[in-house]
Design a protein around this nucleic acid. Sequence first.
DNA 1: ATTAAATATTGCAATATTACGATAAATAAA
DNA 2: TTTATTTATCGTAATATTGCAATATTTAAT
Lengths: 109, 109
Amino acid sequence: MGVTRSDLFTEKQNEFSKVAKVFGHPARLAILEYLLKSNSCICGDLVEELGLAQATISQHLKELKNAEIIKGNIEGTSVCYCINEEKWYEMKMIFNELFDRYPNPKDCC
Amino acid sequence: MGVTRSDLFTEKQNEFSKVAKVFGHPARLAILEYLLKSNSCICGDLVEELGLAQATISQHLKELKNAEIIKGNIEGTSVCYCINEEKWYEMKMIFNELFDRYPNPKDCC
DNA sequence: ATTAAATATTGCAATATTACGATAAATAAA
DNA sequence: TTTATTTATCGTAATATTGCAATATTTAAT
């Protein structure tokens, strides 16, 4: 066993968790924060900045791209990465939708 | 190797990713959503509701509790779980802090 | 055409996560 | 005290993730 039972959950729950999982690694957060302050960068910048191996950075970039959180534009031999604006706002929205569902006043045990 | 290089990242990044990781499984989202609508519940409710084994639910509850996202109060033979209000608002805040860091107007590649 | 530069992919080892049956622990009810 | 109820923990198997060296791929420059 040991395989996530996606069949038991809603499409929304599976989608949300997939996005959240991308935030669930400090290297990917560091990449996003670097992109937030620099607007765009190439893989090599991140290798220098973060101190992880090039292959590792590339892998994290791939996951961020798969989740559509970032976009990559080929520019010569390098790839210029930046945050995907649409997805960013969509994420902001769905996270807030969740956070705002907390009942107020609450009545806890 | 294969062990996360927490030493390379900031305390904030490591903490944030730890919280995000908890959101990164549909079962835990389902648990939180159930708690949001019912205000409180016991482990058995979730076993029925979600269809995962009791041991599995208990494990997910443990992770949610470790992350301080939920609290558990012993009531007889059962444990009443509910959302930790303080942590909930704290999470809302730190996620929004991240999302709001997106530069506008942006200048992408 | 060669060489250089940048990124992606492959292959592998280490570690972490997920799931569940079995069992333990703790309290309530009889 | 015995039994029932509820949750936690243990043990284990399957799967997923992380990291990096080595290599492949792609385009630019010479």
